[in-house]
């Protein structure tokens, strides 16, 4: 049994939605309804669900990018929900995020070297030369080169930008990385490259991933444990093999049945 590195207890987040004529009415939408998860050190916890299930809200609440209305998030014995200011900033070094859209998540007016090095600057890690070397090593590790440091994000393809996003998150040597749909905007050949890169980095750096995805085929490949979400609630959770081979809840069963190509593959293969 490995140690729990990040856990959430009873997370609840309620959004107000304007309704009716001119938006005078309001409706409360529970984006997260009493959600509790546990991430084991060095492993990958996948959160799957359809749009509107609350999986991205969960990602943001875990990292305190969005304040939850209720509930606690524990990281190495610290309750992040009670932490703020400098103390939270110090912890954030160990909690990083890789975003979905590699076209929207990189500042177009900053050079790649600045984007990747910004975290080191904020956390005052090393002097200028040490920072430059760290950024360079990280870029090389994700498959980019020294000359790329002086380029702007628009000069790169989608897959390369996702590599920059990964380098930006990992240069701080975090413990936990929340990946919010990191491959859903990519072609399948690029997707395979990025998934393998994430796996290698996980082993090298001892990372723990929370992997948010709507793609059940990708999740099958990356996850150790899986949480299935629907309308802000956890429908089912468990080890990836057990959950895929014997889903208990009807919602999970329907979700697995809807994986494209799955029903027909046996008749086609023969």
């Amino acid at each position: 049994m490995s140690e729990i590195i990040l856990s959430a207890k009873g997370l609840t987040k309620i959004y107000k939605q304007r309704t009716g004529k001119f938006g005078f009415g309001t409706k409360l939408v529970k984006a997260l309804d009493d959600v509790s998860i546990e991430l084991k050190a060095g492993q990958t916890l996948a959160v799957v669900g359809e749009s509107g299930s609350g999986k991205s809200t969960l990602a943001r609440c875990l990292l305190q990018l969005l304040p939850a209305d209720k509930g606690e998030v524990f990281f190495q014995g610290n309750n992040l929900a009670n932490t703020s200011g400098q103390a939270l900033r110090d912890l954030r070094r160990y909690l990083q995020m890789v975003f979905q859209d590699p076209f929207a998540s990189l500042n177009p007016r900053m050079k790649v070297g600045e984007i990747v090095g910004e975290g080191l600057l904020i956390h005052r890690l090393g002097n200028a030369e040490e920072r430059r070397i760290k950024v360079l090593r990280m870029l090389e590790r994700v498959g980019l080169s020294a000359t790329d440091m002086g380029k702007y994000p628009h000069e790169f393809s989608g897959g390369q930008r996702q590599r920059i996003g990964i380098a930006r998150a990992l240069v701080l040597e975090p413990k936990v990385v929340v990946c919010d749909e990191p491959v859903s905007a990519l072609d399948v050949s690029i997707q395979a490259q990025i998934l393998l890169l994430l796996k290698e980095l996980q082993q090298e750096m001892g990372l723990s991933y929370v992997f948010i995805s709507h793609d059940l085929r990708v999740v099958r490949h990356v996850a150790d444990d899986v949480v299935v979400m629907h309308s802000g609630r956890i429908v089912e959770q468990g080890g990836v093999e057990a959950l895929y081979s014997a889903p208990r809840e009807e919602y999970t069963q329907n979700l697995l049945k809807a994986i494209p190509g799955r029903a027909k593959q046996h008749s086609l293969a023969t």
Partner: peptide, 28 residues
Amino acid sequence: LYKPQHPYTKALLDCVPDAEGKKQLKPI
């Protein structure tokens, strides 16, 4: 899908994750 002839088709199919998780993903 099951008897691809062209190297590109084969390589592309090797990138596609399957729902059983049996396949070893291989980038092109």
